[in-house]
């Protein structure tokens, strides 16, 4: 897949393609700045890893008829990977949920120092790559179960947009 360039695609485990788009903060504001989330949860500590998963699940169960397994379980897993990254590597952040025509979209925003600037961006999406002692599977799992990932990172923090597609599974 591409490196720090704009857009790249990679096949997931189920044969679908996940598009990874890397943008800057200005582009993020232009794309999403005027949108209002349907619900928002703070990410402050370890307990929020489980709590946000449960709250998102409860919220979407009541509002989306397509929110069913196996897609539901896969999206919750991939979302947990993103929230865990915030808790592991940053002082905290927030999870915002938006509802698109094809499924929920999640914005995971943190107040960290951004992804390691010396590492090519594509490395973060490779299975087994980690700047710590962890498995380095988080981004890899996200790529398997989200249709599109938009990444915006700098020393001002990281914004990760995770777009699902419940209609095509």
């Amino acid at each position: 897949m591409g490196c720090s360039c704009g857009t790249s695609k990679e096949l997931s485990a189920n044969g679908e393609q996940c598009t990874v788009i890397i943008i800057d903060h200005e582009e993020y504001e232009a794309r999403y700045g005027r949108q209002k989330p349907v619900v928002m949860f703070p990410i402050r500590g370890q307990s929020d890893v489980t709590l946000t998963r449960h709250l998102v699940d409860e919220y979407l169960k009541e509002r989306l008829s397509l929110w069913k397994d196996p897609a539901r379980a896969r999206i919750l897993l991939a979302l947990t990977e993103a929230v865990t990254n915030v808790v592991k590597h940053t002082p905290g952040g927030a999870l915002s949920v938006y509802i698109d025509a094809v499924g929920p979209r999640f914005h995971v925003i943190d107040r960290g120092k951004g992804l390691h600037p010396d590492c090519p961006m594509c490395k973060f999406f490779r299975k087994g790559f980690s700047t710590t002692a962890s498995l380095g599977a988080g981004f890899f799992v996200m790529m398997q179960y989200f249709r599109e990932i938009v990444l915006c990172t700098s020393s001002r923090g990281t914004k990760l947009v995770l777009c699902s597609d419940l209609k095509s599974g």
Binding site: T80, E81, L135, A137
Partner: peptide, 12 residues
């Protein structure tokens, strides 16, 4: 009913 890569990493 749920395990993520952190849980798997703990087992490994």
């Amino acid at each position: 009913n749920f395990i993520d890569s952190t849980g798997i990493g703990q087992l490994i």
